[in-house]
Amino acid sequence: MNPVQAVGRSTLGLLRTAGSVAIFAGRGVGASLSTPWFAGQLARQVVAIGYLSLPVVGLTAVFTGAALALNIYTGGGRFNAEQIMPQIVALGITRELGPVLAALMLAGRVSAAIAAEIGAMRATEQIDALNTLSTDPFRYLVAPRLIAAVLTLPLLTAVADTIGVAGGFLVATQTLGFSGPLYVQNTWNFLTSWDIESGLIKSAVFGFIVALMGAYHGYNASGGARGVGRATTHAVVSAAILVFAADYILTSLFTAK
């Protein structure tokens, strides 16, 4: 195959995959926005995706907030601007690191779990069984996961924002000699509601991406156990890449206003 053919084949493959994902997403959104809903499934997914991700998101946020504080303090010191560290930490966490890190943690924990579970259901004919039992797999499997991720990732991000800023606060007050009340006051006065809202809007989009990639790759898994493993890897990698791409696009849109 000559190089032009190879590029053409790859491009066609990419377009086919993009189309397939778009159709899958359309069916998933359609099932999410119309009845019947499976409330039990939704509740189960809210717990699995949201509640059970709290420890990993919280730990990531506290360490990131603390490290960010140290880095900004050191960097700011190069031009005598150490004192703006609380503001930069708060801005960095709420607008960028909170939503992105929470989404990446979910990509690793949740996207993989969704792909593995749905992929195993595909391999063991449980998805075929759903169809024969007059139950649409998109309503029963995909929609609850999409809704749960879109609802819970902003909540997790709000927690990550709080804990991340607290991590910066701890380092600043315990090791860098900042005054606690002043740190809080500087942070509070500096942040606008849009700093927080833009991060939460981003995280809702990221939640959709994470759940969609897990469900898409799991639903289309083939080839038994190896296929399920492949689907899980693809879900995590594609979710992470799409989160970064969406982050750039959304940040561009938000900063252009």
Binding site: F38, R44, A120, M121, T124, E125, Q126, D128, A129, T132, L133, S134, T135, Y140
Partner: peptide, 26 residues
């Protein structure tokens, strides 16, 4: 009705919930 080769029971549900799946959901 269909009996699948590997039974295809839903792992996350109890046996009665599996058997009654069509009744409760559809």
């Amino acid at each position: 009705g269909m009996l699948f080769q590997g039974a295809a029971l839903f792992d996350s549900l109890t046996i009665w919930e599996n058997v009654a799946f069509r009744l409760t959901n559809a």
